[in-house]
Design a protein around this nucleic acid. Structure first.
Lengths: 144, 144
DNA sequence: TAGCAATAGTTGTATTAGCAACTATAAGTA
DNA sequence: TACTTATAGTTGCTAATACAACTATTGCTA
Protein backbone atom coordinates (compact mmCIF):
# COMPACT_ATOMS: atom_id res chain seq x y z
CA UNK A 1 0.00 0.00 0.00
CA UNK A 2 1.44 3.35 -1.06
CA UNK A 3 2.25 5.78 1.71
CA UNK A 4 -0.35 8.24 0.45
CA UNK A 5 -3.22 6.13 1.76
CA UNK A 6 -1.48 5.57 5.00
CA UNK A 7 -0.78 9.22 5.59
CA UNK A 8 -4.03 10.44 4.12
CA UNK A 9 -6.57 11.28 6.76
CA UNK A 10 -9.43 8.92 6.02
CA UNK A 11 -10.32 8.98 9.69
CA UNK A 12 -10.71 12.72 9.44
CA UNK A 13 -12.93 12.49 6.38
CA UNK A 14 -15.19 9.96 8.05
CA UNK A 15 -15.39 12.17 11.11
CA UNK A 16 -16.11 15.33 9.11
CA UNK A 17 -18.83 13.63 7.02
CA UNK A 18 -20.50 12.14 10.04
CA UNK A 19 -20.42 15.46 11.86
CA UNK A 20 -21.98 17.17 8.86
CA UNK A 21 -24.79 14.60 8.73
CA UNK A 22 -25.34 14.72 12.48
CA UNK A 23 -25.51 18.51 12.48
CA UNK A 24 -27.92 18.58 9.59
CA UNK A 25 -30.18 16.06 11.26
CA UNK A 26 -30.16 17.89 14.57
CA UNK A 27 -30.87 21.25 12.99
CA UNK A 28 -33.72 19.77 10.99
CA UNK A 29 -35.19 18.17 14.12
CA UNK A 30 -34.87 21.51 15.94
CA UNK A 31 -36.34 23.50 13.05
CA UNK A 32 -39.39 21.23 13.15
CA UNK A 33 -39.57 21.37 16.95
CA UNK A 34 -39.24 17.59 17.29
CA UNK A 35 -37.52 17.89 20.67
CA UNK A 36 -35.29 14.90 20.12
CA UNK A 37 -31.57 14.36 19.58
CA UNK A 38 -29.99 12.31 16.80
CA UNK A 39 -28.94 9.54 19.15
CA UNK A 40 -32.30 9.49 20.87
CA UNK A 41 -33.78 9.01 17.41
CA UNK A 42 -31.50 6.04 16.78
CA UNK A 43 -32.72 4.38 19.97
CA UNK A 44 -36.32 5.26 19.12
CA UNK A 45 -35.91 3.59 15.73
CA UNK A 46 -34.44 0.44 17.25
CA UNK A 47 -37.05 0.24 19.98
CA UNK A 48 -39.77 0.60 17.38
CA UNK A 49 -38.28 -2.21 15.34
CA UNK A 50 -37.52 -4.62 18.17
CA UNK A 51 -40.43 -3.78 20.47
CA UNK A 52 -39.08 -5.15 23.76
CA UNK A 53 -35.35 -5.41 24.39
CA UNK A 54 -32.82 -4.93 27.15
CA UNK A 55 -30.18 -2.22 27.56
CA UNK A 56 -27.52 -4.71 26.53
CA UNK A 57 -29.26 -5.73 23.31
CA UNK A 58 -29.89 -2.10 22.44
CA UNK A 59 -26.22 -1.37 23.03
CA UNK A 60 -25.20 -4.12 20.63
CA UNK A 61 -27.72 -3.02 18.01
CA UNK A 62 -26.55 0.60 18.08
CA UNK A 63 -22.80 0.10 18.62
CA UNK A 64 -23.07 2.16 21.75
CA UNK A 65 -21.61 1.54 25.18
CA UNK A 66 -24.12 0.20 27.68
CA UNK A 67 -23.42 3.17 29.96
CA UNK A 68 -24.30 5.50 27.11
CA UNK A 69 -27.52 3.57 26.51
CA UNK A 70 -28.34 3.75 30.18
CA UNK A 71 -28.08 7.52 30.18
CA UNK A 72 -29.86 8.20 26.89
CA UNK A 73 -32.71 5.92 27.95
CA UNK A 74 -32.86 7.80 31.25
CA UNK A 75 -33.56 11.00 29.30
CA UNK A 76 -36.13 9.27 27.09
CA UNK A 77 -37.94 7.87 30.14
CA UNK A 78 -38.10 11.39 31.59
CA UNK A 79 -39.62 12.59 28.31
CA UNK A 80 -42.21 9.80 28.51
CA UNK A 81 -41.01 8.10 25.32
CA UNK A 82 -39.75 4.87 26.87
CA UNK A 83 -40.94 2.52 29.59
CA UNK A 84 -38.63 0.40 31.74
CA UNK A 85 -40.02 -2.91 32.93
CA UNK A 86 -38.24 -5.39 35.20
CA UNK A 87 -37.91 -8.87 33.71
CA UNK A 88 -39.84 -11.61 35.52
CA UNK A 89 -37.42 -14.51 35.27
CA UNK A 90 -34.14 -12.56 35.67
CA UNK A 91 -34.18 -9.74 38.16
CA UNK A 92 -31.01 -8.23 36.71
CA UNK A 93 -32.65 -7.53 33.37
CA UNK A 94 -34.80 -4.56 32.45
CA UNK A 95 -36.93 -4.63 29.32
CA UNK A 96 -37.34 -1.42 27.37
CA UNK A 97 -40.25 -0.49 25.16
CA UNK A 98 -41.80 2.56 23.59
CA UNK A 99 -44.76 4.22 25.27
CA UNK A 100 -47.70 5.31 23.09
CA UNK A 101 -46.08 8.75 23.08
CA UNK A 102 -42.84 7.11 21.94
CA UNK A 103 -44.65 5.43 19.06
CA UNK A 104 -46.26 8.73 18.08
CA UNK A 105 -42.87 10.41 18.13
CA UNK A 106 -41.49 7.72 15.85
CA UNK A 107 -44.27 8.17 13.31
CA UNK A 108 -43.93 11.94 13.60
CA UNK A 109 -40.16 12.09 13.02
CA UNK A 110 -39.69 9.27 10.52
CA UNK A 111 -40.71 11.21 7.38
CA UNK A 112 -38.09 13.84 8.16
CA UNK A 113 -35.43 11.15 8.45
CA UNK A 114 -36.39 9.58 5.12
CA UNK A 115 -36.17 13.00 3.45
CA UNK A 116 -32.75 13.67 4.97
CA UNK A 117 -31.41 10.29 3.88
CA UNK A 118 -32.53 11.05 0.36
CA UNK A 119 -30.78 14.39 0.50
CA UNK A 120 -27.52 12.80 1.60
CA UNK A 121 -27.66 10.16 -1.15
CA UNK A 122 -28.56 12.52 -3.96
CA UNK A 123 -26.41 11.90 -7.09
CA UNK A 124 -25.20 8.57 -5.74
CA UNK A 125 -26.08 5.21 -7.25
CA UNK A 126 -26.92 1.79 -5.91
CA UNK A 127 -23.38 0.75 -6.76
CA UNK A 128 -21.99 3.59 -4.67
CA UNK A 129 -24.05 2.43 -1.74
CA UNK A 130 -22.78 -1.13 -2.10
CA UNK A 131 -19.20 0.11 -2.43
CA UNK A 132 -19.39 2.31 0.65
CA UNK A 133 -20.90 -0.49 2.66
CA UNK A 134 -18.28 -2.93 1.50
CA UNK A 135 -15.32 -0.65 2.22
CA UNK A 136 -16.57 0.36 5.65
CA UNK A 137 -17.19 -3.29 6.49
CA UNK A 138 -13.65 -4.22 5.52
CA UNK A 139 -12.21 -1.42 7.64
CA UNK A 140 -14.46 -2.38 10.52
CA UNK A 141 -13.32 -5.98 10.43
CA UNK A 142 -9.67 -5.10 9.91
CA UNK A 143 -9.58 -3.50 13.30
CA UNK A 144 -8.94 -5.79 16.27
CA UNK B 1 -33.15 5.79 -5.71
CA UNK B 2 -34.70 2.57 -4.36
CA UNK B 3 -36.16 2.75 -0.91
CA UNK B 4 -33.62 0.28 0.44
CA UNK B 5 -30.85 2.89 0.39
CA UNK B 6 -33.06 5.47 1.94
CA UNK B 7 -34.11 3.22 4.77
CA UNK B 8 -30.77 1.53 5.11
CA UNK B 9 -28.76 2.90 7.97
CA UNK B 10 -25.67 4.31 6.26
CA UNK B 11 -25.39 6.88 9.01
CA UNK B 12 -25.23 4.07 11.50
CA UNK B 13 -22.51 2.25 9.59
CA UNK B 14 -20.39 5.39 9.37
CA UNK B 15 -20.87 5.96 13.08
CA UNK B 16 -20.03 2.37 14.00
CA UNK B 17 -16.89 2.33 11.84
CA UNK B 18 -15.65 5.62 13.19
CA UNK B 19 -16.28 4.50 16.75
CA UNK B 20 -14.36 1.29 16.10
CA UNK B 21 -11.38 3.25 14.72
CA UNK B 22 -11.49 5.81 17.50
CA UNK B 23 -11.59 3.11 20.16
CA UNK B 24 -8.74 1.20 18.61
CA UNK B 25 -6.60 4.33 18.38
CA UNK B 26 -7.30 5.32 21.97
CA UNK B 27 -6.58 1.85 23.31
CA UNK B 28 -3.34 1.72 21.36
CA UNK B 29 -2.30 5.14 22.68
CA UNK B 30 -3.13 4.00 26.20
CA UNK B 31 -1.34 0.67 25.82
CA UNK B 32 1.81 2.55 24.81
CA UNK B 33 1.34 5.12 27.59
CA UNK B 34 1.21 8.03 25.13
CA UNK B 35 -1.04 10.06 27.45
CA UNK B 36 -2.95 11.65 24.62
CA UNK B 37 -6.49 11.41 23.27
CA UNK B 38 -7.45 10.83 19.65
CA UNK B 39 -8.69 14.37 19.18
CA UNK B 40 -5.65 15.83 20.89
CA UNK B 41 -3.61 13.88 18.38
CA UNK B 42 -5.55 15.42 15.50
CA UNK B 43 -4.77 18.90 16.78
CA UNK B 44 -1.16 17.93 17.38
CA UNK B 45 -0.90 16.74 13.78
CA UNK B 46 -2.39 19.96 12.41
CA UNK B 47 -0.25 22.17 14.60
CA UNK B 48 2.83 20.28 13.46
CA UNK B 49 1.86 20.78 9.84
CA UNK B 50 0.78 24.42 10.02
CA UNK B 51 3.24 25.61 12.67
CA UNK B 52 1.47 28.77 13.81
CA UNK B 53 -2.29 29.15 13.48
CA UNK B 54 -5.27 30.56 15.36
CA UNK B 55 -8.10 28.73 17.11
CA UNK B 56 -10.39 29.60 14.23
CA UNK B 57 -8.10 28.22 11.55
CA UNK B 58 -7.56 25.07 13.57
CA UNK B 59 -11.32 24.70 13.91
CA UNK B 60 -11.76 24.90 10.15
CA UNK B 61 -8.92 22.47 9.47
CA UNK B 62 -10.30 19.86 11.86
CA UNK B 63 -14.05 20.34 11.29
CA UNK B 64 -14.43 21.05 14.96
CA UNK B 65 -16.38 23.76 16.73
CA UNK B 66 -14.23 26.64 17.94
CA UNK B 67 -15.44 26.08 21.50
CA UNK B 68 -14.28 22.48 21.27
CA UNK B 69 -10.88 23.66 19.99
CA UNK B 70 -10.65 26.15 22.82
CA UNK B 71 -11.17 23.44 25.41
CA UNK B 72 -8.93 20.79 23.86
CA UNK B 73 -6.15 23.37 23.46
CA UNK B 74 -6.64 24.32 27.10
CA UNK B 75 -5.84 20.72 28.08
CA UNK B 76 -2.86 20.60 25.73
CA UNK B 77 -1.48 23.83 27.17
CA UNK B 78 -1.78 22.35 30.66
CA UNK B 79 0.15 19.31 29.43
CA UNK B 80 2.86 21.61 28.05
CA UNK B 81 2.30 20.53 24.44
CA UNK B 82 1.01 23.82 23.07
CA UNK B 83 1.89 27.48 23.53
CA UNK B 84 -0.60 30.34 23.19
CA UNK B 85 0.79 33.63 21.95
CA UNK B 86 -1.17 36.85 21.53
CA UNK B 87 -1.03 38.32 18.01
CA UNK B 88 0.76 41.65 17.70
CA UNK B 89 -1.43 43.40 15.12
CA UNK B 90 -4.81 42.07 16.24
CA UNK B 91 -5.36 41.75 19.94
CA UNK B 92 -8.36 39.48 19.46
CA UNK B 93 -6.25 36.76 17.87
CA UNK B 94 -4.18 34.13 19.64
CA UNK B 95 -1.57 32.14 17.74
CA UNK B 96 -1.05 28.52 18.68
CA UNK B 97 2.11 26.51 18.21
CA UNK B 98 3.70 23.34 19.49
CA UNK B 99 6.23 23.51 22.30
CA UNK B 100 9.41 21.42 22.00
CA UNK B 101 7.59 18.85 24.12
CA UNK B 102 4.69 19.00 21.67
CA UNK B 103 7.04 18.33 18.77
CA UNK B 104 8.57 15.42 20.66
CA UNK B 105 5.12 14.01 21.33
CA UNK B 106 4.31 14.25 17.62
CA UNK B 107 7.43 12.34 16.62
CA UNK B 108 6.81 9.84 19.39
CA UNK B 109 3.19 9.07 18.49
CA UNK B 110 3.31 9.30 14.69
CA UNK B 111 4.72 5.80 14.02
CA UNK B 112 1.85 4.28 15.98
CA UNK B 113 -0.65 6.23 13.87
CA UNK B 114 0.94 5.07 10.61
CA UNK B 115 0.79 1.49 11.81
CA UNK B 116 -2.87 1.82 12.77
CA UNK B 117 -3.78 3.38 9.43
CA UNK B 118 -2.13 0.45 7.70
CA UNK B 119 -4.11 -1.96 9.83
CA UNK B 120 -7.39 -0.28 8.92
CA UNK B 121 -6.60 -0.31 5.20
CA UNK B 122 -5.41 -3.89 5.05
CA UNK B 123 -6.93 -5.76 2.06
CA UNK B 124 -8.13 -2.53 0.48
CA UNK B 125 -6.77 -1.09 -2.77
CA UNK B 126 -5.92 2.35 -4.04
CA UNK B 127 -9.19 2.27 -5.98
CA UNK B 128 -11.12 1.59 -2.77
CA UNK B 129 -9.51 4.60 -1.18
CA UNK B 130 -10.45 6.81 -4.11
CA UNK B 131 -13.99 5.44 -4.09
CA UNK B 132 -14.49 6.00 -0.38
CA UNK B 133 -13.15 9.53 -0.66
CA UNK B 134 -15.37 10.29 -3.62
CA UNK B 135 -18.55 8.94 -2.03
CA UNK B 136 -17.96 10.69 1.28
CA UNK B 137 -17.25 13.93 -0.56
CA UNK B 138 -20.51 13.68 -2.49
CA UNK B 139 -22.47 13.04 0.70
CA UNK B 140 -20.68 15.91 2.41
CA UNK B 141 -21.55 18.33 -0.34
CA UNK B 142 -25.10 17.08 -0.70
CA UNK B 143 -25.87 18.30 2.77
CA UNK B 144 -26.85 21.96 3.14
C1' DT C 1 -24.29 -25.86 49.81
C1' DA C 2 -20.66 -22.38 49.83
C1' DG C 3 -17.77 -19.76 47.02
C1' DC C 4 -16.50 -17.78 42.82
C1' DA C 5 -17.16 -16.20 38.20
C1' DA C 6 -20.24 -14.16 34.88
C1' DT C 7 -23.90 -11.01 33.65
C1' DA C 8 -27.08 -6.66 33.82
C1' DG C 9 -27.16 -2.33 34.94
C1' DT C 10 -25.84 2.21 37.42
C1' DT C 11 -22.72 5.88 39.01
C1' DG C 12 -18.26 8.67 39.03
C1' DT C 13 -15.11 11.02 36.21
C1' DA C 14 -13.00 12.91 32.04
C1' DT C 15 -13.33 14.16 27.20
C1' DT C 16 -15.61 15.79 23.03
C1' DA C 17 -19.61 18.31 20.88
C1' DG C 18 -22.42 22.26 19.92
C1' DC C 19 -25.52 26.10 20.91
C1' DA C 20 -26.29 30.55 23.29
C1' DA C 21 -24.57 34.31 25.58
C1' DC C 22 -20.85 36.91 26.81
C1' DT C 23 -16.27 40.07 26.55
C1' DA C 24 -12.96 42.31 23.88
C1' DT C 25 -11.24 44.14 19.82
C1' DA C 26 -11.34 45.62 14.97
C1' DA C 27 -13.58 47.47 10.90
C1' DG C 28 -17.00 49.96 8.43
C1' DT C 29 -20.21 53.90 8.16
C1' DA C 30 -23.19 57.99 9.02
C1' DT D 1 -15.98 60.97 15.90
C1' DA D 2 -19.85 58.15 17.44
C1' DC D 3 -22.42 54.16 16.30
C1' DT D 4 -23.04 49.79 14.35
C1' DT D 5 -21.46 45.51 12.71
C1' DA D 6 -18.21 41.83 12.36
C1' DT D 7 -14.67 38.90 14.25
C1' DA D 8 -11.85 36.10 17.92
C1' DG D 9 -12.25 33.76 21.73
C1' DT D 10 -14.24 32.14 26.41
C1' DT D 11 -17.81 30.42 29.59
C1' DG D 12 -22.31 28.13 30.84
C1' DC D 13 -25.16 24.51 29.83
C1' DT D 14 -26.66 20.02 28.05
C1' DA D 15 -25.74 15.73 25.63
C1' DA D 16 -23.02 11.73 24.11
C1' DT D 17 -18.89 8.75 24.89
C1' DA D 18 -15.99 5.47 27.35
C1' DC D 19 -13.43 3.53 31.10
C1' DA D 20 -13.37 2.06 35.95
C1' DA D 21 -15.62 0.81 39.91
C1' DC D 22 -19.65 -0.43 42.00
C1' DT D 23 -24.34 -3.19 43.29
C1' DA D 24 -27.33 -6.89 42.47
C1' DT D 25 -28.42 -11.13 40.63
C1' DT D 26 -27.58 -15.52 38.30
C1' DG D 27 -24.92 -19.57 37.04
C1' DC D 28 -21.17 -22.72 37.69
C1' DT D 29 -18.47 -25.73 40.35
C1' DA D 30 -15.79 -27.80 44.05
Amino acid sequence: MPDTYVSNPSFFKLDATLKKIRNYWQKTFDAHCKEITVDQWLLLENLHKHKKITHNELARLTSKDITTISRIIELMVKKGLVLREAAQNDRRKVFLQLTPLGNEKYKDVRPLVLEMRKTGWKDLTEKDYVELTRILDVIYHNIP
